[in-house]
Structure formats: C-alpha cells, structure tokens
Amino acid sequence: MPNEGKLAYLLFEYSIIAGVLLGIFYAFLSMGLNLIFGVQKIINLAHGDMVMLGGFGAWELYYTYHVNPILAVVIVIPFTVALGLALYYLLIPRLSGATDMETLSLVLFFGVSQVIEALTTLGLGNNERNLPINSIPSHPIHVLGQAFAAEAWVAAGVSLPLLALFFFYLYGTPLGRQTRAVMADSNEAAAVGIDSGRVSAISFGIGLALATSSGVMAIFVLGGVNPSEGPGLTIIAFAIVVFGSLGNPFGTLLGGVLFGIAYEAAQVYATSWSDLVPLVLVLGVILLKPQGLLGKRTRVV
C-alpha cells in the first residue's frame, strides 16, 4: 500500500498525463475558432454547435451506414467545408459594410447557434446520444503503471495528426501562406494581390470543419452528444484560444494543453468544482492578460 506522499505523487502524475491527452484534443476542438477569428476578426459563437453537429454526424454515420467513428472524423470534413462556404457567402457580405461589425457579427452567430440547436433538437430529440465504446479501440492503456482510458488516447491520437495536417496547410502550402498573410494584415494582403474574400471563405469552411471533426471524438471524451452542449463548448474553446492568444495557432496548442492539465487536476483534487475551470480560466485570462500567453501586443477585440 502506497504511503501518502507516494499517492499524492501518483495523482499528480495522473493529472499531468491525462491532462496532456485531453489538452491535445481540446486544442484541436478550439483551433477552428482561432482560425476564423484570425482571418475574419469574427468570434464564431456557433463554434460549439458545429462540434455538436459533428457528434451527431458521427452517430448517424455509425448507425445508418455502419461507418467507424475514426473514419467519420475525416468524412465530416468535406461536408462541413461545403456548409461553411454556403454560410459564409449567405451571411458575411451583407455584414461587411456595418459600422459596429464586431458586435453585430457576435449577435449574428449567436442567432446561428440558436437555430442550429433548435433544428437539431426538433430533428433528433433532446436526449443524449452515445456511441458504443467498442466502436473505437477500447482497452485501457497503461503508462508508468497507471491506467488511462482508451478514449483519451484515441481522441489525442486522432487529433494530433489532424493538427499536424492543419499546420502543414497553414505553413507549407500557398493557400496557407495567403491565409497567414490575411491574418497578419488583410489590407496589406490585398495590396499584394491576395483575394482576401476567397481566403476568408475557405478559412471559414476549414474552421467549421475542424470543429465538426473534433465533435466526432467529443462523443467519447464528453461521454455523449446532446443538442444543447454547444454554448458551453464555445466558452471552453474561447477560453483556450484567448489563453494562448487570439490569432496565434501555436498559442491554441499551448492553451489547450494547459487547460487539459488544469481540468484534470481539478477533477482529481476538487471534483465538484471542476466545471468552474474553463470559466475561471476565461475570466482570469481576459482580465489579467487579455493578450494571452503568446501575445506580443495587447490585442483587445
């Protein structure tokens, strides 16, 4: 039987490892919010609802077409990009001339979030859906003598290559370079001949696709999917993105991992307060360090 010091060490070790696994997943879940903000200066308040839609998409694919959830992570991407492009051209051009564009876009996507939630509830009912745990590898994995749930490894294992792919797109392809140029300064980008409208539309599609794609894994990490989970996830994603610095994709990676560790630590040491973690994080960061961990200068939206 381990003594108290040994136990405390094991708990600490557990929360770090489980936190990093969870954090990689949450970084993936939040990345799309940051991409859309970086390019458009819009906070997509329907981000969490897109995650939720991804979860329902995977559920449908599994039960109707017997598609393995890990495959579904990839299948939802093209559909979401198409949906994103349609939404973009439907909504954004009308908004662009407005004086108070920032608050208005916030309210607009808030409306979009409400519509998605209502339609999902009306179409699929208000109860939580689950996928059988054995639809993905389900045997607990032991590290340093401690058992970690398989879904944490799978979620991190699926998120990591997709994040790598996203960074390759952003830093290794012509379109990605254009995207970064628009993120840095859309006027400058336009001056060197980049079609920032096209870049914005594509980034919007990709941003949403990152969300739905992560939503497939969210079923396993969150223990199910239900239509009203969107706004809560949006807050978590916002906390992570701001924590790491708005507009900086590497910041989101760091923010996700630190969030994961904080959350797991709260789970271990103060279970009933662990839901407060993202809320305290978001309030603490925006009040104490609004430019985020990797922010060079204050960029208050």
């Binding site: 916030l106 807050i235 916002f238 978001v282």
Partner: peptide
C-alpha cells in the same frame, strides 16, 4: 474589455 471579450466574459461570469 471590449466586444467579444466583454460579451463572453460576462457569460462566463454568470455561468460561474
């Protein structure tokens, strides 16, 4: 704070 920071910050405070 401004804009999104304020809107979401106030929401987080209410939820907290």
């Amino acid at each position: 704070l401004r804009g999104a920071y304020f809107a979401i910050g106030s929401l987080a405070a209410a939820n907290a």
